[in-house]
């Protein structure tokens, strides 16, 4: 199986090619993001450098959210175009699951945090004892202080000694989190802090082996939040 994984859900853009049980090549960029411009050239570079034609790919993996609304759509629209034209199956993976997978086979509770702007973060709780992250909550969006409250509660209730935090939702509130959370809370090192297309590929392969494919024509981003206008309209109604 050759699997191409594409992620542009956050300020990081990543593309990875999985084959023969390993990552053959991966590109990661967290520099002056312009996913709309850079994503397809990344795909092209990866395939060329591994001498693989897009038609030889067996499956496409893509992050479906949460994340930046526009970033998610750039990734998913690209994958829809590729998959329809090359007739490829698609596996959509949660951005938060992909990030939790950076810490596979760990005994800590893993909480990826994504910056949701408007002083909120997207998060979910994962147990990562096994090779596929086990979801302990649905996707949430909450303020940093609500998060602190929930994570403290969950750690004790679910009986975890340590909690690992990662993601770009941590950064704007790092000082606050450091003050509020004790030494049971560890921050991911830089190379595991953000989404990795390699992790996306690993998870997508697991799903592809079980033939758990998504419908390329109907798969949608998981926004978690309504658009601002819909939210306002709902308030009026």
């Amino acid at each position: 199986m050759l699997l191409l994984a594409i992620d542009s859900a956050t300020p990081v853009a990543g593309v990875a090619l999985w084959g023969d049980g390993r990552i053959l090549r991966e590109e990661y960029s967290d520099y002056k993001q312009t996913h709309s411009r850079d994503l397809m050239p990344m795909v092209d570079r990866i395939l060329r450098s591994c001498e693989v034609d897009i038609k030889e790919i067996s499956v496409l993996g893509v992050t479906i959210g949460p994340g930046s609304f526009t970033g998610l759509r750039i990734g998913l629209a690209t994958v829809k175009g590729l998959a329809m034209a090359a007739n490829l199956p698609v596996v959509g993976i949660s951005t938060l699951e992909m990030m939790a997978h950076n810490f596979a086979h760990n005994s800590a509770l893993v909480c990826p945090l994504l910056d949701a702007r408007k002083n909120e973060v997207y998060t979910a709780f994962f147990d990562v004892h096994s090779s596929y992250p086990r979801r302990l909550s649905k996707d949430l969006f909450c303020s940093p202080s609500e998060f602190v409250e929930i994570v403290k509660e969950q750690r004790i209730e679910l009986n975890y000694e340590k909690v690992i935090l990662l993601g770009n939702g941590y950064t704007p509130y790092s000082e606050y989190f450091q003050n509020e959370l004790g030494e049971e809370y560890a921050l991911a090192p830089a190379h595991l802090m953000y989404p990795r297309a390699g992790a996306l590929a690993s998870l997508a392969v697991e799903r592809a082996i079980k033939e758990e494919f998504d419908d390329v024509r109907t798969i949608k981003p998981v926004y978690v939040r309504l658009s601002e206008a819909e939210y306002q309209l709902g308030k009026e109604a």
């Binding site: 994503l39 397809m40 759509r73 990734g75 629209a77 829809k80 034209a85």
Partner: peptide, 17 residues
């Protein structure tokens, strides 16, 4: 944001063909 949906799709579609 609207342009980017069509553009990203078109790029993937053209590339694969």
């Amino acid at each position: 944001g609207a342009l980017l949906v069509g553009l990203s799709y078109a790029k993937g579609f053209a590339y694969a063909l």
